[in-house]
């Protein structure tokens, strides 16, 4: 992977970015979540072979965190977009 399309800055060198891991939202109601749910959130990962939704940070650019959909075998990025609260 050589370039990543930043939702703000367009195609930029991949070394400007920092990888933030797979998309893994926190338990929606933290006080009600049990040990099993927290274990799942803190440790367990899908480690997807295929298209993965993941976080990236434009470290040397606009300093924004955004989401990307990338195939983990080919590293092809099909889409990048900003996070929006789920309704």
């Amino acid at each position: 992977m050589i370039q990543i399309p930043c939702p703000h800055c367009g195609l930029r060198n991949a070394q400007e970015f920092r990888y933030g891991g797979e998309y893994n939202p926190r338990p929606w109601h933290p006080l009600e979540a049990g040990d099993a749910e927290w274990t799942e959130y803190v440790f367990m990962r899908d480690n997807q072979w295929g298209v993965q939704k993941e976080w990236w940070f434009h470290r040397a650019g606009c300093q924004a965190w955004f989401l990307a959909e990338r195939h983990t075998k080919t590293n092809e990025i099909s889409r990048t977009y900003l996070w929006k609260p789920e309704t």
Partner: peptide
Amino acid sequence: GWCTTIADMAGVRLPVTT
């Protein structure tokens, strides 16, 4: 490399990132 893929087949969750 494929340990998550194999564990998924048995329905076991792993805390692994490749």
